[in-house]
């Protein structure tokens, strides 16, 4: 049977890996390829690279570092940030990325999902969703790379996930903004709600602080993978330890 995936997320800005709290106050945590190689060695199942400023700035991730990563690591990885067209996607996939993730540009132009899925296949098209409670409902945010430009879309998260899968998205990464960077645990309630409408793989993001948070999100929300950043970058949790713990707790992971 399929193993649950542990996915370090590397937020990239200007060619460096950074991490902030609740999308603000970014600090430098290291070189892209050094961190990618370290996580692959420690047992990460997959990596996600978000160019967090690309959507806000209006430019796209540069394929140069995509190719450097692809050359070095032997696990799958996904690239996100400012991908607006078939050409943007093709450049990253042909440079060696296994998947591309779209978020803000898909909100502005939902047809982009259909176009990319037709061209490259659903299996490499990931929908990224930044979601939080507003007016009593889970809703989608845009432009989260720059706090001055953040705005709230009126779309409801569950509707958007359903629509995106209908259009051809092959995986969903749900970033629960209220929990991001605060290490209080994943947003189980929201992830359960999205799981119920999500027929593709679902990846939890936002809130990991302890090993038991991973156990809970796999057991309670039945997600396919759990993504985390700061706990891995800062050495709070070591991936090998985490997987050994999950294995002992009866969760199927790749040793």
């Amino acid at each position: 049977m399929l193993a649950k995936r542990i996915i370090p997320c590397l937020d990239v800005r200007d060619g460096r890996v950074v991490k902030g709290v609740k999308f603000r106050d970014h600090e430098d945590v290291g070189d892209i390829v050094d961190l990618a190689r370290r996580y692959a060695r420690e047992g990460a199942d997959e990596l996600v690279f978000y160019d967090i400023a690309a959507s806000a700035r209006g430019d796209t991730v540069e394929p140069e570092w995509v190719s450097r990563v692809a050359r070095e690591i032997d696990i799958p990885f996904c690239v996100a940030g400012g991908i607006r067209s078939i050409e943007d996607a093709r450049a990253r996939l042909f440079a060696g990325a296994d998947k591309i993730s779209i978020n803000t540009p898909a909100l502005a132009n939902a047809d982009l999902i259909d176009t990319l899925a037709r061209e490259f296949g659903s299996q490499c098209i990931v929908l990224g969703v930044d979601s939080r409670v507003i007016d009593g409902d889970w809703r989608v945010h845009q432009f989260t790379g720059d706090p001055d430009k953040t705005l709230t879309d009126h779309r409801k998260t569950l509707d958007w996930v359903r629509e995106a899968i209908e259009r051809g998205a092959g995986e969903v990464v749900l970033n629960c903004m209220d929990m991001d960077g605060v290490r209080d645990g994943y947003d189980i309630e929201q992830l359960q709600a999205v799981r119920a409408v999500c027929s593709t793989p679902l990846i939890a993001s936002g809130g990991a602080g302890r090993k038991d948070h991973f156990k809970s999100v796999f057991e309670l929300a039945n997600v396919d993978g759990a993504l985390a950043a700061s706990v891995f970058h800062k050495g709070v949790i070591e991936i090998g330890d985490l997987k050994a713990y999950l294995g002992e707790e009866g969760i199927r992971v790749r040793p």
Binding site: M1, L2, A3, G170, E171, T200, P201, D224, G225
Partner: peptide, 15 residues
């Protein structure tokens, strides 16, 4: 086939 409790496509590490 879409089986109970399994998502489509088959994506990830399998034994």
């Amino acid at each position: 086939p879409l089986s109970d409790g399994l998502v489509w496509p088959h994506m990830g590490w399998n034994a």
